[in-house]
Amino acid sequence: MEILADSPTVPGNVLDSREIPSDVTLVIPLVCRLVERLVQDGCVPDDDRRKVELCLDEAITNAVTHGNDSDFEKMVHVQLYLDGDRWGIVVTDEGEGFTREAVPDLEADEQLWQESGRGIALMCLYMDEVTYFDGGRTVNMVRRCSRLGSGE
Protein backbone atom coordinates (compact mmCIF):
# COMPACT_ATOMS: atom_id res chain seq x y z
CA MET A 1 0.00 0.00 0.00
CA GLU A 2 1.43 3.37 -1.10
CA ILE A 3 0.58 6.89 0.03
CA LEU A 4 1.30 9.37 -2.77
CA ALA A 5 1.23 13.16 -2.60
CA ASP A 6 -0.47 13.84 -5.92
CA SER A 7 -4.09 13.41 -6.98
CA PRO A 8 -5.37 10.36 -8.87
CA THR A 9 -6.81 10.46 -12.35
CA VAL A 10 -9.93 8.37 -12.66
CA PRO A 11 -9.37 6.23 -15.75
CA GLY A 12 -11.93 4.62 -18.02
CA ASN A 13 -15.70 4.98 -17.75
CA VAL A 14 -17.30 6.26 -14.56
CA LEU A 15 -20.12 3.85 -13.64
CA ASP A 16 -21.39 5.76 -10.63
CA SER A 17 -20.47 8.92 -8.78
CA ARG A 18 -21.94 9.80 -5.39
CA GLU A 19 -21.24 11.64 -2.17
CA ILE A 20 -22.50 11.21 1.37
CA PRO A 21 -22.17 13.26 4.55
CA SER A 22 -19.94 11.66 7.18
CA ASP A 23 -22.44 9.43 8.95
CA VAL A 24 -21.56 5.74 9.40
CA THR A 25 -25.19 4.68 9.08
CA LEU A 26 -25.10 5.85 5.45
CA VAL A 27 -22.14 3.64 4.52
CA ILE A 28 -23.79 0.22 4.23
CA PRO A 29 -26.70 1.42 2.03
CA LEU A 30 -24.15 3.09 -0.27
CA VAL A 31 -21.98 -0.02 -0.42
CA CYS A 32 -25.04 -2.15 -1.23
CA ARG A 33 -25.90 0.13 -4.15
CA LEU A 34 -22.35 0.17 -5.53
CA VAL A 35 -21.81 -3.59 -5.24
CA GLU A 36 -25.18 -4.28 -6.82
CA ARG A 37 -24.05 -2.23 -9.81
CA LEU A 38 -20.78 -4.18 -10.02
CA VAL A 39 -22.61 -7.51 -9.86
CA GLN A 40 -25.14 -6.44 -12.49
CA ASP A 41 -22.33 -5.33 -14.81
CA GLY A 42 -20.58 -8.68 -14.44
CA CYS A 43 -17.56 -7.18 -12.68
CA VAL A 44 -18.06 -9.13 -9.43
CA PRO A 45 -19.38 -12.70 -9.19
CA ASP A 46 -21.85 -13.50 -6.43
CA ASP A 47 -19.19 -15.64 -4.71
CA ASP A 48 -16.98 -12.58 -4.26
CA ARG A 49 -19.72 -10.15 -3.29
CA ARG A 50 -18.95 -10.35 0.43
CA LYS A 51 -15.24 -9.64 -0.08
CA VAL A 52 -15.98 -6.62 -2.25
CA GLU A 53 -18.61 -5.36 0.20
CA LEU A 54 -15.98 -5.61 2.93
CA CYS A 55 -13.37 -3.62 0.96
CA LEU A 56 -15.81 -0.86 0.03
CA ASP A 57 -17.17 -0.74 3.59
CA GLU A 58 -13.65 -0.41 5.00
CA ALA A 59 -12.58 2.31 2.54
CA ILE A 60 -15.72 4.43 2.93
CA THR A 61 -15.95 3.91 6.72
CA ASN A 62 -12.29 4.98 7.03
CA ALA A 63 -13.09 8.13 5.06
CA VAL A 64 -16.11 8.88 7.25
CA THR A 65 -14.63 8.11 10.66
CA HIS A 66 -10.88 8.68 10.35
CA GLY A 67 -10.67 11.06 7.38
CA ASN A 68 -13.61 13.30 8.19
CA ASP A 69 -13.73 12.48 11.91
CA SER A 70 -17.48 11.79 11.52
CA ASP A 71 -18.08 15.50 10.92
CA PHE A 72 -21.49 15.57 9.22
CA GLU A 73 -20.56 18.79 7.44
CA LYS A 74 -17.74 17.03 5.60
CA MET A 75 -18.53 14.87 2.59
CA VAL A 76 -17.14 11.60 1.31
CA HIS A 77 -16.96 11.40 -2.48
CA VAL A 78 -17.09 8.06 -4.28
CA GLN A 79 -16.49 7.22 -7.94
CA LEU A 80 -16.91 3.73 -9.33
CA TYR A 81 -15.27 3.12 -12.70
CA LEU A 82 -14.51 0.51 -15.31
CA ASP A 83 -11.08 0.49 -16.94
CA GLY A 84 -10.68 -2.23 -19.54
CA ASP A 85 -10.64 -5.58 -17.77
CA ARG A 86 -10.59 -3.97 -14.32
CA TRP A 87 -12.98 -2.02 -12.14
CA GLY A 88 -12.01 0.44 -9.47
CA ILE A 89 -13.29 2.80 -6.85
CA VAL A 90 -11.94 6.16 -5.75
CA VAL A 91 -12.98 7.34 -2.27
CA THR A 92 -12.08 10.87 -1.18
CA ASP A 93 -12.58 12.55 2.18
CA GLU A 94 -12.15 16.15 3.29
CA GLY A 95 -9.80 15.46 6.19
CA GLU A 96 -6.12 15.95 6.91
CA GLY A 97 -4.78 12.73 5.39
CA PHE A 98 -2.38 10.38 7.18
CA THR A 99 1.13 8.93 6.99
CA ARG A 100 2.32 5.33 6.67
CA GLU A 101 3.49 5.46 10.29
CA ALA A 102 -0.10 5.92 11.47
CA VAL A 103 -1.02 2.46 10.18
CA PRO A 104 -0.13 -0.33 12.63
CA ASP A 105 2.14 -3.10 11.37
CA LEU A 106 -0.14 -6.08 11.86
CA GLU A 107 2.63 -8.50 10.95
CA ALA A 108 4.11 -7.98 14.40
CA ASP A 109 2.73 -10.46 16.98
CA GLU A 110 2.42 -7.77 19.64
CA GLN A 111 -0.10 -6.01 17.39
CA LEU A 112 -2.54 -8.93 17.54
CA TRP A 113 -4.29 -7.31 20.50
CA GLN A 114 -4.88 -4.03 18.68
CA GLU A 115 -8.55 -3.04 18.63
CA SER A 116 -8.26 -1.04 15.40
CA GLY A 117 -6.11 -0.64 12.29
CA ARG A 118 -7.12 -3.76 10.33
CA GLY A 119 -9.22 -2.01 7.67
CA ILE A 120 -6.44 -1.26 5.20
CA ALA A 121 -4.98 -4.75 5.68
CA LEU A 122 -8.34 -6.28 4.75
CA MET A 123 -8.63 -4.03 1.69
CA CYS A 124 -5.14 -5.09 0.56
CA LEU A 125 -6.07 -8.76 1.00
CA TYR A 126 -9.03 -8.75 -1.33
CA MET A 127 -8.27 -5.97 -3.84
CA ASP A 128 -5.53 -6.22 -6.49
CA GLU A 129 -4.27 -2.68 -5.87
CA VAL A 130 -4.77 -0.21 -3.03
CA THR A 131 -3.11 3.20 -3.43
CA TYR A 132 -3.60 6.34 -1.38
CA PHE A 133 -3.28 9.79 -2.95
CA ASP A 134 -3.50 13.39 -1.75
CA GLY A 135 -1.46 12.52 1.35
CA GLY A 136 -4.03 9.89 2.37
CA ARG A 137 -7.24 11.79 1.63
CA THR A 138 -8.06 9.68 -1.43
CA VAL A 139 -7.85 5.94 -1.95
CA ASN A 140 -8.01 4.19 -5.31
CA MET A 141 -8.72 0.45 -5.18
CA VAL A 142 -8.63 -1.78 -8.25
CA ARG A 143 -9.74 -5.35 -8.95
CA ARG A 144 -9.92 -7.47 -12.07
CA CYS A 145 -13.38 -8.05 -13.47
CA SER A 146 -14.76 -11.50 -12.72
CA ARG A 147 -15.44 -12.32 -16.34
CA LEU A 148 -11.67 -12.32 -16.85
CA GLY A 149 -10.77 -14.02 -13.58
CA SER A 150 -11.47 -13.32 -9.92
CA GLY A 151 -8.29 -11.37 -9.36
CA GLU A 152 -7.06 -13.70 -6.60
Binding site: Q114, G117, R118, L122
Partner: peptide, 8 residues
Amino acid sequence: YMSSAGLG
Protein backbone atom coordinates in the same frame (compact mmCIF):
# COMPACT_ATOMS: atom_id res chain seq x y z
CA TYR B 1 -20.42 -10.32 7.85
CA MET B 2 -17.80 -8.66 10.00
CA SER B 3 -15.66 -5.63 9.25
CA SER B 4 -12.41 -4.59 10.88
CA ALA B 5 -14.49 -2.63 13.40
CA GLY B 6 -16.24 -5.85 14.41
CA LEU B 7 -12.95 -7.71 14.71
CA GLY B 8 -11.67 -4.90 16.93
